[in-house]
Amino acid sequence: MIFPEVRYLYKYTSVNDNSLGIFIKDEFWFAKPDTFNDPLDCGIQLINNISKEKFLEKSNEYLKYLESSRKPRTKNPQLTQKIKSVKEVITKVKTGNALTDEILDSFAKIASESYSKDIKNIGILSLSEVNDNVLMWSHYADQHRGFCIELERNKDSDLADNKKTLPVRYSIKKPDISIEEHEQANKEEEKEIRRSLIYTKSVDWNYEREWRVIQDIGNKSYKINAKINSVIFGLKTPEHSIKTIYELFNKTGLFIKFRRARLKEKDFGIEIVDFDPKLMIFNDEIKNDSSSHQSAKSNTAAKLPNSSPSLAPAKLKVNHP
């Protein structure tokens, strides 16, 4: 288990059927990368260093793939044009002495698209190390109207399995992968290439401190072996949504903590505080109210005269003007 100091991971979400399904079915939604808000996510651009022989071999493989994609008695002008273009390139390379930069760039683009298609079909569950980031509450939790799920990360959970869950690496540059490197990779090396693409994002996103759980097929719900430790409501989570989630857990009989975001008094930011969804009040406010009430009772008692040992209450002497 890497980074054992990271004991909890958090899922920001809006209130919807998929997020409520987490509590009903014990399943999380794994989205495809093309649904993400970062257009560069899981993207790939292979470097075009390839020999003439390898180029022709791969081009012919790609041509066979395109031709096999044709459906009988169905017109597909875009596919027909693509097949024509590939044939022209193959002929040009065969009759020429060298690969031009234009041809190499075209091939690298085609290879990148083919490789990206496979990656963009995977499923990703995005989690974070932090639960109090104002931007993430705005972006992923419906502008603070949603909630955040705290998942416990221990050695027996899927969140501690390095084959399934890893932290994102933030970088200024995209991962450099050559066509030759990609083509010659064995199964284990291929996995490492995929991982570097899936777990690398632009440094602009490093405030998210993201971790990712991976499944082979995306846009599906999956169970994960990880205990829900608490649910955190946002600054603007509607009362009816809070009550719905509270009732869902009441029916399951599972014990979890409830907390809620609250604005800090002096600083820009929020703090996460224990919360009672039944009374719709922060726990420290309950204690403060109780302390104030107790203090008021004590002050009242201090003003009254000592009671008589007899059963009859003592009479107060009142001086009338």
Rank of each mutant, 00 (worst) to 15 (best):
V15R: 03
A302S: 13
V203K: 11
P305D: 09
T200Q: 06
L197A: 00
L125I: 11
D216F: 08
V213S: 03
S307Q: 13
N49G: 10
L40P: 10
P238G: 03
F55Q: 06
S241C: 11
K109F: 05
K297T: 08
N133M: 09
E27A: 08
L104K: 13
V86L: 06
K92G: 10
Q81K: 15
K243A: 07
F30I: 14
L46Y: 00
Y12K: 01
K317H: 14
K278C: 09
L197R: 03
L151W: 02
K201L: 04
G96H: 09
M280K: 10
V6M: 12
K109A: 11
L56D: 03
A312S: 14
N121C: 11
L151C: 04
I119M: 04
E180L: 06
W211V: 05
N288C: 14
R73G: 09
N60T: 15
Y207G: 03
V86D: 00
F147V: 03
L151D: 00
I50K: 00
D26I: 03
S114F: 06
S307C: 10
T80I: 15
K75S: 11
V93M: 06
D34R: 07
S291K: 14
F147C: 02
D158H: 01
P33W: 01
K287A: 15
D26E: 14
I110F: 04
G146R: 01
N37H: 10
S69P: 05
K82Q: 13
I193M: 06
A296Y: 08
V203M: 11
A312H: 14
L66D: 02
E183W: 11
D274A: 09
I179P: 00
Y170G: 03
K71H: 08
Y207T: 06
I193N: 02
R153K: 12
T100R: 06
I198T: 07
E265C: 10
L56C: 04
I286N: 01
Y65S: 15
S230L: 07
L197I: 09
A301Y: 11
I242F: 02
D156H: 09
K303L: 14
I217S: 06
K25Q: 15
L127Y: 00
Y199N: 02
D38Y: 05
I242D: 00
Q215C: 13
H139K: 07
